[in-house]
Design a protein around this nucleic acid. Structure first.
Lengths: 343, 343
DNA sequence: TTGAAAGCGCTACCAG
DNA sequence: CTGGTAGCGCTTTCAA
């Protein structure tokens, strides 16, 4: 029943009260007598009135919305990011705006435009220019996710280095492997850049020469398959182990290897990063690094919401979330005694 | 330079003109003398003024935003949907709001709330109740994606039945296979429901008994791995072919099969649906059905934007986009002569 | 061509 | 406790 295009004034007239009273009732603010409240609620109910968001937002000087900016989302990692963000935004009655800057040249402008429509923005590292980020930060609270921001823009990221160092050292020392390759494009994101650096660092620490270059591919499963094509084609000696920038790539490499009849880990060791659900389930189960992907954006949303409430209106308090090395079968470790999920 | 918290009034004062003139200049509407325009632009430039979105939206009675509602996004299919939607929204200067109703019980309320913040909404089929959908449609244009809406709410969907019928018939007739199983949950989405129905239909058409029940799992790769565990554990006779509700499941089944040392397609035939990038690249390449995922949402966005402009304010014009059977190696068809991408 | 003023729908202050 | 009223920032008549 009832058109939702009713306004406070109409409801006020119908209930025979003032707009102020209608507002008080519909917001639960202030003191209203039982009699008045009943009359107003009746009119609201009868006509299906719900306050218009724009009017409310304009009066409050607040959008009730948060923005999330991606490079060009793909795969489970990004969907996890979105869900983590949402999990915090929704309970605070904030809607989520998303923007994929992709390859568009006007990315900076679009991010700035977004800044005009939301109460705060979380930006995935490496997505927009530092200049745009700083400018954006003058209008709303900004948090960088999976990367570091310029100036004192706070960030929320995972401890890439620690676990990648441990993982590489594990392969090098515990499994005594040499000729490892790294698959992923360090120029593509701060995350991969840190992982590649830690991969090399582990080699250096042990006095071993790391490969000079990574196999630079994107982060999707298809890219892993392509990398496998390149690494396992037989033209060059096969590496002993393939350290991948994320699980998707690793799964692609795994499929590529298995499809060629190679045995993993006997003929080839493969590792991933992220610990996505499929990692524990494939055969052989994937050795990887667990990072709290949803927490990244959930934490960022909290930071932003807190800042949006406060006078200063600037987010603060960078944090680095812990990661965890998850050893499973694909690196050559023995299969766990039961079940085999590796958890 | 310049705080972007300037208002029309301040700029007007600084430029020594009226707010109306500032508005005209910043929108490029109406006639303004060269002299005035220059003065205003100078002030705008100097103070970095950009009109506030809320004020503008309230005056225009339009949000400049579109909403996209998902069940609980995961995987490449959903990211494609988002990108397709964005590709149409961004050029129209509309921001994209997203909402994952997930398992939340208040999904209907949230969708209705979204309806108050945007100019139109696209809802993935099977996400919210018909009742909520109808109510939503009274406030803004609504389009259902990958499913059918109640009443005369328009929808944009892919031709699931046609290609699934052709695919199943291909396995049954051309490859003379029996004992096919279907992996996917028909209750999970209209898409899967249609695919399962067509899978059964193809059997009936040929006088063959289809399996009574599908292997009901979700749509992610991990679920495919689980399905493989169940189907290939050896407790029951192995099926001849596994027809999967999407490529992700199929890839999971493929990994599960290869990890067990089975040969595909010799020992087991596997097919998918979607034709995601990895499908063409894995070994063996995946036989699947190509559907224009991005087009689905792009088309929906166009429908909504058009409707939002018009007086009636109701979207109209359902459409069914064509799909295409893509035969590759995993169903037993010979490998293509060159390259091997199957395209 | 320009400006004054009337809203858009809502909240919140200030009197009564 | 209640109602009038002044905005929030912008666009858009309507006169001048």
């Amino acid at each position: 029943m009832g058109n939702s295009r009713m306004t406070v004034r109409e409801i006020a007239k119908l209930a025979g009260v003032s707009v102020a009273t209608v507002s008080r009732v519909s917001n639960g603010t202030g003191q209203v007598s039982e009699e008045m409240r009943r009359r107003v609620l009746e009119a609201i109910e009868k006509h299906g009135y719900r306050p218009d968001h724009l009017g409310r937002a304009l009066a409050a000087g607040r959008h009730g919305a948060l923005g999330l900016v991606f490079p060009g989302l793909s795969g489970p990692y990004f969907t996890e990011l979105i869900q983590g963000f949402e999990s915090e935004a929704v309970p605070s009655r904030a809607s989520v705006h998303i923007l994929c800057t992709h390859l568009r040249s006007d990315a900076d402008d679009q991010v700035l435009e977004m800044g005009r429509r939301v109460d705060g923005v979380a930006v995935i590292g490496g997505t927009v220019s530092d200049e745009a980020l700083l400018r954006l930060a003058t209008m709303v609270p900004v948090v960088v996710i999976a990367g570091e921001g310029p100036g004192d823009i706070p960030s929320v990221r995972a401890d890439n280095a620690g676990s990648m160092l441990a993982l590489t050292r594990h392969l090098l020392v515990d499994h005594d492997l040499r000729d490892l390759v790294f698959v992923g494009n360090p120029a593509g994101s701060p995350d991969v850049s840190e992982r590649w650096a830690a991969f090399r660092g582990a080699h250096h620490d042990l006095g071993i020469d790391p490969p000079a270059e990574p196999v630079a591919v994107s982060m999707q499963q298809a890219d892993g398959v392509l990398a496998a094509d390149q690494l396992l084609c037989g033209d060059t000696p096969r590496p002993a182990g393939v350290v991948c920038a994320n699980d998707e790539i690793a799964l692609g490499v795994l499929v590529g290897a298995l499809g060629r009849g190679l045995r993993v880990p006997q003929d080839l060791v493969i590792t991933g990063f992220d610990d996505m659900p499929a990692a524990a389930l494939v055969t052989p189960a994937l050795t990887t690094v667990r990072q709290p992907v949803r927490e990244l954006t959930a934490e960022a949303a909290r930071l932003i919401l807190r800042a949006a409430d406060q006078p200063g209106n600037t987010a603060a308090g960078s944090l680095v979330l812990p990661t965890e090395l998850v050893l499973r079968r694909s690196c050559g470790c023995p299969a766990p005694p039961t079940g085999g999920t590796g958890r």
